[in-house]
Computed example of a mutant assay.
Amino acid sequence: MNLTFWAALPQVQKQLQQLQDDLLKTVDLPNQPVHISILKLLQSGGKFLRPGVFYLFSSLGSTPDEARLLAGASAQELLHLAVQCHDQVSDDRLKGPHLGQANRQRNAIYAGDYLLTRYFAELLKTQPSAADLPDDLNAMQRILAGHLTQLQHQFDLTETVPAYFTEINQKTGEAFRFSAEQGAKLAGATPELIDLSAKIGASIGTAYQVHQDIALAFGQPKPLLISLQKGQYPLPLILILKRPAIQQVLKKRQQLTLNDVQLIQRQLDRKAAQSQLNNLTDHINHLLNELPAGTAQNDLRQFIRMLFQA
């Protein structure tokens, strides 16, 4: 975990350190290749954003229980890690993978499946009611649906901005919505605050994905090349996707070069992409104004500043 990111929010930083220590102790498998792949994910330097959001919104509750919140935060991170594992599996565009690659793909599948079972185990520790479980299952299904929608849009030269937002609302937006809602709910927040938390979380997730897309599109060409060779187009590229010259270059698919990427980057409109992000962050700040004044609201504002400066 990247502890430095959370330095300005020491209480959340402390909770996330405890979470990481707990996950490292409880995620244990006899199969060493699968076990090692999970440990690498846990120690990869990620920011633990979803459990961090969970803990931020848990401060809106009136009856926090440390053990219950730890289980809830664990469930959020385990679901995220499971999806990450499955994302590592190469698609069928790779012809004739060698034995080492095939083994890595198999291990990633098993690791992802195992982490999903751990997600449910931690979820049950939060003592959900019979009415809660369908919501928890539906959230997972919507997140997975978002990733499946992303697969459907691979190499899609007809993808539109509305279609893009539908996809990321399902994927990243839903993941953050679920984290925020669960944090508030498990800490005993009022129904009104739980609903507001869900709206804010969804807005944060959508804006974060756009922020990541902008960083990818205008950053170093190598990461963007990898994304384009997989047929994954960030928002700044989708904004100009209808241009014939852009489509002609993208048709090269895996044969794209760094020179091709640099040519594309020179045609991107940073102002238009940033305008999309500004609209989203303005909406987040408007929703934050509806929260009760106090520590929770202040911490969330600080988190938003940190998130979109990173």
Rank of each mutant, 00 (worst) to 15 (best):
H211E: 10
Q254T: 11
A273M: 04
L186R: 15
G173L: 11
L235M: 12
Q229P: 04
K252M: 02
T190S: 15
Q220P: 00
R243Y: 05
L239S: 06
Q247D: 06
Q262H: 08
P236T: 02
I194M: 13
Q262N: 14
H211T: 06
Q254N: 06
S179W: 11
A189L: 02
Q248P: 00
A272S: 08
S179F: 09
A207K: 04
P223F: 10
R266W: 00
K251Y: 00
P191S: 10
K242S: 15
R253S: 07
T257E: 02
K252V: 03
Q212M: 14
F178D: 09
F218N: 07
Q274L: 10
K252Q: 14
Q248K: 13
R266M: 04
Q220D: 14
V261G: 02
Q182M: 15
P236K: 06
Q255I: 00
A198T: 11
D260S: 04
T206L: 15
Q265Y: 12
A202I: 01
I240K: 13
S197Q: 10
V210K: 03
S227N: 06
A180F: 13
Q262S: 05
T257F: 08
A272W: 04
I238F: 02
G183N: 09
G188Y: 14
Q212S: 05
D269N: 15
L186G: 01
L263E: 03
D260G: 02
L237H: 04
T206I: 11
Y208A: 08
Q262Y: 03
K252I: 01
A217D: 05
L186E: 06
P223Y: 09
S275H: 12
V261T: 13
R253K: 15
D269K: 03
P234T: 09
Q248C: 01
L228G: 07
I226S: 07
D195Y: 05
R266T: 03
D269E: 12
G173S: 12
V249S: 04
L216T: 03
Y233V: 01
N259A: 10
D260Q: 09
Y233E: 10
P234L: 10
L239W: 11
F176Q: 10
V249Y: 01
S227I: 01
L228D: 09
R177K: 14
L277V: 06
F176D: 09
A180T: 14
L228S: 05
L258S: 07
A198C: 10
N278P: 00
I240G: 00
P191M: 11
Q265S: 05
P236L: 04
L239F: 05
D269I: 05
I226N: 09
L256S: 01
